[in-house]
């Protein structure tokens, strides 16, 4: 009986346990599905709708990657992971790529042995307080009660910040964003600290967002991005250049609306031509075909479109582009050349 369940489900899932070799691309193709690790639920970044369809900023990257590799943005198995389980899942091969607002740090890169594919969101840890508190700077928060989400780098940053400034605080560790929000709104903590994007997203859903302010201090650098295991450079390349495609496409004005047209015949921009496969064979070099970038872009549009759709200013979350604007517009989004 025990075996029947395991074996039954094993074959049913097509999950024939072969040695997870180096060639992730082959595994993914053979499986016909991309296993993508995402958050268990974070407003704007990953959340399921009533039909169980996942959507969000982090999810969109997975869809683009699945479209590039498998030709189908819905050929994905989403594996929802907590802060605790995410690295183990990636290390053990349970997922092919982790796209779960994960900060790029040296230890994660080197000690935990992961390869970051780039940055899809430049974030930093900030503080949100009720306006009534009358505080203008984080340095005036001596003795305040601070809500933090555990299992992230935020609690370490927070401890550092208060230690360096020689002021005291009272931490309230919390598992999920939803609970942090509840405590903050009820006044159980004076300050809520997490990534600035998260703060904005949370504030947007308050009944009276105007009663709360986000303090100007950003106390850390949080470059968030997707990551894969060490040791499969081909797979890392595919993931990295899928991300670069999304970013570059925005720079060159390729959108989900005009991408078909631009891919039909060579345009005046050779870079776009190489990206969309009307010129050269960059796709083949990656181990894919010439249409990979086209498919990735058709899945959800370019970086700008994804941003606007899930977390941009017209969404309830209402994040400004800020650091995440294209480098041509004063931001940090800068894709290396397609050459």
């Amino acid at each position: 009986m025990k075996n029947s369940v395991i074996l039954g489900a094993l074959t049913a899932a097509g999950l024939i346990a072969g040695a997870a070799g180096a060639a992730t691309l082959d595994d993914v193709k053979a499986r016909g599905k991309l296993n993508c690790g995402i958050n268990t639920g974070l407003v704007g970044f990953a959340a399921p709708d009533a039909n169980g369809e996942w959507s969000g900023f982090d999810v969109a990257y997975c869809r683009a990657l699945a479209a590039a590799v498998l030709g189908d943005p819905s050929a994905i198995e989403f594996v929802s992971l907590t802060g605790k389980t995410r690295f183990t899942a990636l290390a053990s091969g349970e997922i092919d790529v982790l796209s779960r607002n994960t900060t790029w740090t040296l230890t994660r890169d080197v000690d935990l042995k992961f390869t970051f594919l780039g940055v899809n969101y430049y974030d930093g840890q900030g503080f949100m307080i009720p306006k009534g508190l009358g505080v203008g700077s984080a340095k005036e928060l001596d003795g305040a009660t601070v809500c933090i989400q555990t299992g992230t780098t935020t609690e370490l940053n927070l401890a550092d910040f208060f230690r360096v400034n020689n002021i005291s605080y009272e931490p309230v560790p919390i598992e999920t964003n939803a609970e942090a929000q509840q405590q903050f709104l009820a006044g159980a903590c004076d300050v809520y600290t997490t990534d600035a994007s998260g703060l904005a997203a949370t504030r947007a859903t308050f009944e009276n967002p105007a009663d709360y302010v986000i303090l100007p201090e950003i106390i850390s650098k949080e470059p968030l991005g997707p990551l894969v295991r060490h040791g499969d450079d081909e797979w890392a390349d595919i993931g990295r250049w899928t991300l670069n495609t999304l970013i570059a496409a925005e720079e060159y004005g390729v959108t989900s609306a005009n991408v078909d047209e631009m891919a039909a015949k060579p345009t005046s921009n050779p870079e776009v031509n190489r990206m969309l496969g009307t010129e050269g064979n960059l796709g083949e070099m990656l181990g894919l075909d010439g249409q990979w970038a086209l498919r990735a872009l058709k899945a959800g549009g370019n970086y700008g479109e994804i941003f606007e759709k899930h977390i941009g200013e017209n969404t309830p979350i209402g994040l400004a582009r800020g650091l995440n604007a294209q480098w041509t517009e004063g931001g940090l989004m800068y894709a290396p050349p397609f050459r």
Binding site: K84, F87, T107, L112, T150, G151, L156, V172, P173, I174
Partner: peptide, 19 residues
């Protein structure tokens, strides 16, 4: 609820930060 018992420290944040 974020009460820092042994599961929250040893099995929680410590495990998380050290891997």
């Amino acid at each position: 609820v974020g009460y820092m018992d042994i599961t929250g420290t040893l099995g929680g944040i410590t495990m998380n930060q050290t891997g």
